[in-house]
Measured scan of single mutants.
Amino acid sequence: HNLTITQGKLFFHYNPKLCLSEIHKMEEVSGTKGRQERNDIALKTNGDQASCENELLKFSYIRTSFDKILLRWEPYWPPDFRDLLGFMLFYKEAPYQNVTEFDGQDACGSNSWTVVDIDPPLRSNDPKSQNHPGWLMRGLKPWTQYAIFVKTLVTFSDERRTYGAKSDIIYVQTDATNPSVPLDPISVSNSSSQIILKWKPPSDPNGNITHYLVFWERQAEDSELFELDYCLKGLKLPSRTWSPPFESEDSQKHNQSEYEDSAGECCSCPKTDSQILKELEESSFRKTFEDYLHNVVFVPRKTSSGTGAEDPRPSRKRRSLGDVGNVTVAVPTVAAFPNTSSTSVPTSPEEHRPFEKVVNKESLVISGLRHFTGYRIELQACNQDTPEERCSVAAYVSARTMPEAKADDIVGPVTHEIFENNVVHLMWQEPKEPNGLIVLYEVSYRRYGDEELHLCVSRKHFALERGCRLRGLSPGNYSVRIRATSLAGNGSWTEPTYFYVTDYLDVPSNIA
Rank of each mutant, 00 (worst) to 15 (best):
P205S: 06
P205F: 12
N206P: 02
G207A: 08
G207S: 15
N208E: 12
I209D: 03
I209P: 04
I209V: 12
H211P: 01
R218M: 11
R218Y: 13
Q219A: 04
D222C: 09
D222I: 04
E224M: 15
E224R: 07
E224H: 06
L225A: 06
F226R: 11
F226T: 12
D229G: 15
Y230N: 13
L232E: 12
L232H: 02
K233S: 10
G234R: 08
G234P: 05
L235P: 07
L237M: 10
L237F: 07
P238L: 09
T241S: 06
T241L: 09
T241C: 04
S243Y: 04
P244T: 07
P244M: 14
P245C: 04
S248A: 12
D250F: 14
D250W: 07
D250Q: 15
S251M: 11
Q252T: 13
Q252L: 13
Q252V: 12
K253P: 01
Q256E: 08
Q256S: 06
S257P: 08
E258T: 12
Y259I: 02
E260S: 08
S262V: 03
E265I: 14
C267Y: 13
C269N: 15
P270V: 09
D273R: 11
D273S: 07
Q275W: 09
Q275K: 12
L277T: 02
E279S: 05
E281V: 15
S283P: 09
S284T: 14
F285S: 10
T288S: 04
T288W: 09
F289Q: 11
F289E: 05
E290C: 15
D291I: 14
D291P: 04
N295F: 15
V296E: 07
V297E: 05
V299Q: 14
K302N: 13
S304T: 10
G306I: 10
T307R: 08
T307Q: 06
T307N: 09
G308L: 14
A309G: 12
D311Y: 14
P312S: 14
R313G: 03
P314I: 02
S315W: 14
R316E: 06
K317T: 07
K317W: 05
K317N: 06
R318L: 07
R319E: 13
L321G: 06
L321M: 11
L321D: 02
G322Q: 04
G322E: 04
T328S: 15
A330L: 15
V331S: 06
P332Q: 10
A336E: 03
P338N: 07
N339A: 10
T340L: 09
T340Q: 05
S342H: 11
V345F: 05
P346L: 07
S348A: 04
P349D: 14
E351V: 14
H352T: 06
R353N: 09
F355V: 09
F355W: 13
V359I: 11
K361W: 12
K361M: 13
K361L: 12
E362H: 12
E362R: 10
L364E: 15
I366T: 01
I366P: 00
G368Y: 11
G368H: 04
R370S: 14
F372S: 10
F372V: 01
G374K: 11
G374M: 11
R376I: 15
I377S: 05
I377H: 06
L379F: 06
L379P: 01
Q380T: 12
A381E: 00
A381S: 13
T386R: 13
T386N: 13
E388W: 09
E389M: 14
R390P: 12
R390H: 02
C391H: 05
C391M: 04
Y396H: 12
V397F: 05
S398E: 04
R400A: 05
R400Q: 10
T401A: 03
T401E: 00
P403H: 03
K406Y: 05
D408T: 03
D408E: 01
D408P: 01
D409S: 06
T415S: 09
H416G: 06
E417H: 02
I418P: 11
F419K: 11
E420L: 10
E420D: 15
N422Q: 13
V423L: 04
V423G: 15
V424E: 03
H425W: 05
H425K: 14
L426I: 15
M427A: 11
Q429S: 15
Q429M: 15
P431Q: 15
P431A: 04
K432L: 08
E433I: 15
G436E: 04
L437G: 04
I438Y: 03
V439W: 09
V439E: 04
E442S: 06
E442R: 04
Y445P: 01
Y445I: 01
R447F: 04
R447G: 15
D450V: 12
E452H: 15
E452S: 08
H454M: 15
H454T: 04
V457S: 05
R459C: 09
K460W: 07
K460G: 09
H461N: 05
A463L: 12
A463K: 05
A463V: 08
E465V: 12
R466C: 13
G467V: 06
G467S: 09
C468W: 07
R469N: 06
L470F: 06
L470W: 03
L473M: 04
P475K: 09
P475H: 12
G476S: 01
G476E: 01
N477Y: 13
Y478P: 01
S479C: 04
S479L: 03
V480G: 03
R481L: 11
R483D: 00
T485A: 03
S486M: 13
S486W: 00
L487I: 10
G489W: 14
G489Y: 12
N490T: 08
N490D: 03
G491W: 00
T494W: 01
T497E: 09
Y498T: 08
F499S: 01
Y500A: 09
V501N: 08
V501D: 02
T502I: 05
T502G: 10
D503P: 13
L505H: 03
L505T: 14
D506A: 08
P508K: 04
